[in-house]
Design a protein around this nucleic acid. Structure first.
Lengths: 147, 147
DNA sequence: GCGCAGTGAATTGCGCACAACTGAATTGCG
DNA sequence: CGCAATTCAGTTGTGCGCAATTCACTGCGC
């Protein structure tokens, strides 16, 4: 039988998401420690590896973050020598972010990371797919609510 | 057919959790606005309503937060007149947090909030239960991994 | 009683998130 | 062309998260 009573927080979906999300970033913190990267910084690199050079807006679109979060984060990645930030000639408002050679090299250095994470999750492929789909759908619904 | 390719971030469970979690707190931000409460502050109140006065450690246990997060947060709740913080006579290291009359009154004022959230999620009861269970299990697994 | 390891909360420092704002650059419209 | 509206990145300010440290207090052994 599934619990329908019990601690209030355990019945709140928001709290389950919040807890699960923080639990994953804690695992990432450990895995990313050798590269001195934070989890959001890693996400930016994943996006750059996956899609190539991106403007700040495009990164914001992909990650759901605004310039208030990205600008300082990208500055730190630049300082770490992992990305370059170049203002476009054609439109001087736009800054394009591209991985440096070192930034690109990390892709293969870190290639085991995703499978390490899946091991940590300990989910069957079907369960993983179902959870992924449920979360995408939920996020889409919530973003739609926001209008 | 389910996508097995596509944007890298969309295949990462961590990112789905991160996105979904931020999407829920954004909805909460809007719903909590009338009371000028943040989502973590609301969680503290829920815990106090559910379990009665709690020490800082107990709150930390329940929410998975440490004193570094809770101490300033509780100070803000105290300043807002929603909780009291009293150092125990029996053990002066311990601080007990209790809702004030106003803090308790909020419980009924905000009683519609949970169902409003469930409406936003737009999930069938079965789907909601399944998601909740999957997330609890995942969080437990990840916490176990951390050892 | 005295010292001392251990505990509980608070503080410090850093990096997100996010709202609000700024300022430069561009677009579009008359 | 001229200029107002828009766009893009960056800045500022607040509040988490979390590691590391501090500080007061407790309890234990002697």
């Amino acid at each position: 039988m599934t619990e329908t009573t019990g601690p209030a927080l355990d019945r709140m979906l928001c709290f389950s998401l919040y807890s699960a999300s923080r639990a994953t970033t804690q695992v990432y913190r450990r895995l990313l420690e050798p590269w001195q990267l934070t989890y959001p910084q890693y996400l930016v690199l994943v996006e750059l590896w996956d899609r190539g050079p991106r403007t700040v807006s495009q990164l914001g679109e992909g990650l759901g973050l605004d310039s208030g979060t990205l600008s300082p984060l990208l500055k730190r990645l630049e300082k770490a020598g992992l990305v370059t930030r170049t203002r476009e000639d054609a439109d001087a408002r736009v800054v394009t972010v591209a991985p440096t050679e070192r930034g690109t090299a990390l892709r293969s250095e870190m290639s085991e990371l995703p499978s390490q994470m899946w091991n940590c999750y300990g989910l069957e492929p079907d369960a993983a797919r179902a959870l992924l789909a449920a979360l995408h759908s939920l996020t889409a619904t919530l973003h739609a609510d926001a209008d």
